[in-house]
Design a protein around this nucleic acid. Structure first.
Lengths: 344, 344
DNA sequence: AGACAGATTTAAACCGGTTTAGAGGTCAGT
DNA sequence: ACTGACCTCTAAACCGGTTTAAATCTGTCT
């Protein structure tokens, strides 16, 4: 006994008007007498009518959904604190507009481009979020070719026809370095993210620049990969240096927490022997021992703004301005302390 | 210059047949001459024709999508290692069938039921995954009322018309306890998840039962909430007991890692003074110091199987059997060690 | 040659909305 | 009373597929 949902035809016959009039009334189009509109709305209400997404999708050629492609590969997804909060922010906008969020997870075997192609070919979505932006990101051209509107998270370095929602990673990174300088550190190392990522190089160049402004050079810059395993390895290499750094700035919390473990496993005390800072302020950052000094952005807000921006585009706006979010804030905890005395 | 995708009518005229024949050929229906089928398929191929999801959705009344509702509230989402991998597993099945995964994130203001209602009313999906199953879960009746097929992750305790995909949490928990018993521990405490959740009570009852089988009683059972903050609090309470436990078994890794931090902050050495074990084997478990002894399940596989099972239902199967996944395996690392000598 | 069964194929309705062209009605101006 | 302008509303086409009823084409049998 499936309960049939009322269609627009049911509403029409109940209100004693034509289908077309009902459609006009429900969409608030002008050209109908107010009395008729009221009558139709009342009828729709009594019947509990809800528009059929499927029918609307077909006739107006819109999906009423936005898409997000995520690569699963290097467990990137698996404990990234960014996406869940970002997605929640996106949803907070979509749910008020009756839109849905379609997720495409690209598995190991295929290229990320396939994810976008699938979304485009199946016409599942009206636009997509372009996350984890890379330098000379080929996905931009791909999306242009596919005719799929997009919003980039961060600003691409090449030409891009899409609006960008950006959060400047540099002030946060600078604040961390500044904080360490004030604690007296001079041998500060960095564990960066993969240089292919825009946000990774933004962080590492801010790291270098801030040190340079203080007349210092990095003790070392190791390329990490944002994963805990990579963080461990990079940390081991840094700790094996002839002149061990007294502080390490990581490009994200996962690497930092793993690095913290590696340092402790090597017999070092944090922060007495080594100061450690992360980036993201993920949930565990506050609760590991010692609490991790890090930088806090607002991924939920990022999601909200990205969704709003993408929707402007989807709604047909021609010139959608970029949006700059407030930069991430330094959160000082116990993992950073005054520089140890030189042993020399 | 938007490139128009070819429609079934284009294919029909190119092949010199009617729309209906094309539809038959493309769906492999019998009743067409083989030569005609070949001709049509060739024409479709040359035109690069792809079916329109929207049109198909409307005419066959299916969404070709499955739904997942997630509550964002207690940061549950934010660093849960289960969902990302689970979702990846689901996607690995959906992508081969041209289905999409629609995510509904329920934000703080509304009830979880609203998420399912939205999916049902908008007819966005053909079925949903019911995760984080609770005792006497009201969502089961809701989904029955909404007429939305579902698969439950874990077996509900009441009557349920839906197939269940289960992963028995008890062997893993028992293995942890057994491991601690073999190390000589006798005062073992447990930090449980919220008792409303089926998997939380499964773990805590297995904990109690395994101890009982060895003639022991729990040193204490604290109710946690699966979050790091909750893990910290529960740990502090346990450490303040007159007879401090020598080992703590946590219902998930997040609480365990937070508890590890709390123990270290309290000046204890793990595992010399206190053994700690988690559940999930999340990415960081391996890399904190000391590495966390925990229990590893396979959420990716869980996702695959759940998607397959739900699809059987969606495809119209009447009797879909439950599926039992292989239980989680103990992973021994450094956070568990021999019980400290009694000080008395 | 005509009848008939069986195999192919087509035309048209249908899914539930949106949109356009035009029909019908009202009213003021002449 | 006639005309044109304006307002309100309807009929029908359309989006791109699926599906059903019926038409057409074979070939066989009498």
């Amino acid at each position: 006994m499936v309960k049939q949902r009322p269609t627009i035809a049911d509403v029409a016959s109940r209100a004693g008007v034509s289908k077309g009039s009902v459609s006009f009334a429900l969409n608030g189009r002008p050209g109908l007498a107010q009395a008729t509109v009221d009558k139709i709305l009342a009828a729709a209400d009594e019947l509990g009518w809800r528009p059929s997404n499927r029918a609307r999708s077909l006739s107006v050629s819109k999906a009423f959904a936005l898409g997000l492609v995520i690569t699963r590969d290097p467990a990137v997804l698996s404990s990234d604190p960014f996406f869940p909060a970002f997605i929640a922010g996106v949803e907070s906008v979509l749910s008020t507009r009756g839109q849905a969020l379609v997720l495409q997870v690209v598995t190991a075997g295929e290229s990320e481009a396939d994810g976008y192609r699938r979304l485009a070919q199946d016409a599942r979505v009206d636009g997509v979020f372009l996350s984890d932006l890379r330098h000379d990101d080929p996905r931009i051209q791909l999306l242009v070719d596919l005719g799929l509107p997009a919003v980039t998270l961060n600003r691409p370095d090449g030409e891009s026809p899409f609006p960008a929602v950006t959060l400047d990673d540099r002030p946060g990174t600078s604040a961390v370095v500044q904080h360490l300088l004030e604690l007296g550190h001079t041998r500060i190392a960095h564990v960066a993210g993969p240089p292919a990522f825009v946000h990774a190089t933004a962080r590492s160049s801010a790291f270098v620049a801030t040190l340079a402004a203080a007349g210092l050079k990095p003790a070392a810059v190791e390329a990490g990969d944002f994963t805990a395993a990579g963080g461990i390895e990079a940390t081991r290499r840094l700790l094996a240096l002839p002149k061990r750094p007294t502080a390490i700035v990581y490009a994200n919390d996962r690497m930092a927490i793993a690095g913290l473990g590696a340092a402790q496993a090597a017999g070092l005390t944090v922060p007495d022997d080594l100061s450690i800072a992360g980036f993201d302020d993920s949930e565990l950052a506050e609760y590991v021992h010692p609490g991790l000094t890090t930088v806090r952005a607002d991924p939920f807000r990022f999601g909200e703004v990205a969704a709003q921006t993408l929707n402007q585009l989807v709604d047909g706006a021609t010139e959608v301005p970029d949006v700059e979010l407030p930069p991430a804030q330094l959160v000082v905890r116990r993992s950073t302390g005054t520089a140890p005395l030189e042993e020399t």
